[in-house]
């Protein structure tokens, strides 16, 4: 049975309870000595690692710098994919010839694990930001393009006929009817693409980088700093959640009619 999600104080309380339970389990596990301390830092140690890094930075980089590097790469690659992917998907949805020409390439790229071609991108673009932005672009592009194409195909035909009979020409129909009609589907694609881009950027930083949250985690592992590793993971989770929340807020504002019309 479908039920409306909880909101308000009850939801907050329930969520706080399970977070507290997870923290308690973690603390108990660390204190029990079942896992070697250098492999599992306690919550308190992670907290002090956070204080230390905020105060002194981590190996010559600040936390803010690393977070900004990761988010910046993610959003640059994602943003480029939006700019190109949405028009591409619209074109494929509107023009069967475009879909025939490009469909297989998009469907080939879509399930391809991005890290499998990461190495090529590094060879081509170097180990700097260029290869990572290209990687994220290629990760997000097919997801966004497919979603936009699906959105176009779902536009109710009477809506298009209504616009045409009101005097709208082809491009007016595309701009005033097809694009807004496809927005709910496009936003679904954007959410999936952003999550994919974020997990890929971290993986890419684990492979080759000189800064970023992923790099911080990898570097910490070389020095067996499980407190920093865990801290990095927690920050990554929070950042990822914040990114998708922000996108969801934008989506609710833009496609306010979705699910109600």
């Amino acid at each position: 049975m479908h039920k409306t999600p909880l909101a308000g104080p009850v939801a907050c309380l329930l969520s706080a309870c399970s977070v507290a339970a997870a923290l308690a389990t973690w603390q108990a596990l660390a204190a029990s000595g079942a896992v070697a301390p250098e492999l599992l830092a306690s919550p308190a140690q992670v907290l002090s690692a956070l204080a230390e890094i905020l105060r002194e930075g981590y190996r010559g980089t600040t936390l803010a710098h690393n977070a900004a590097a990761t988010i910046g790469r993610c959003l640059t690659g994602f943003g480029l994919a939006v700019i190109l992917g949405v028009p591409l998907g619209l074109l494929m949805g509107l023009q069967p010839r475009a879909a025939a020409a490009l469909g297989d390439i998009v469907q080939f790229l879509r399930p391809l694990p991005p890290l499998s071609y990461m190495i090529l991108l590094i060879l081509w673009f170097g180990t700097g930001d260029g290869s990572k932005v290209a990687l994220l672009f290629l990760t997000a592009l097919p997801i966004i393009a497919s979603a936009a194409m699906a959105g176009v195909r779902l536009v109710p035909r009477p809506r298009i006929l209504a616009a045409r009979s009101l005097g709208a020409g082809f491009w007016q129909v595309v701009w005033h009817v097809v694009l807004p009609s496809a927005l709910p589907s496009i936003f679904t694609g954007l959410r999936i693409a952003l999550a994919a881009a974020f997990s890929t950027v971290v993986a890419a930083e684990l492979l080759a980088a000189t800064d970023g949250l992923g790099w911080m985690v990898l570097s910490a592992s070389r020095f067996l700093r499980s407190d920093v590793i865990l801290l990095g993971i927690l920050i990554l989770g929070v950042v990822g959640m914040a990114l998708s929340r922000a996108l969801l807020l934008i989506e609710r504002r833009v496609v306010h009619w979705h699910g109600r019309a």
Binding site: P158, A162, A163, A168, H176
Partner: peptide, 26 residues
Amino acid sequence: GVVFQQAALFPWLTVAGNAAFGPMVR
């Protein structure tokens, strides 16, 4: 002008925006 069985309105436009759509595109 055409009116369909299902109103086929533009859900992202207000009532006024829907009513003005024809003159707008023209």
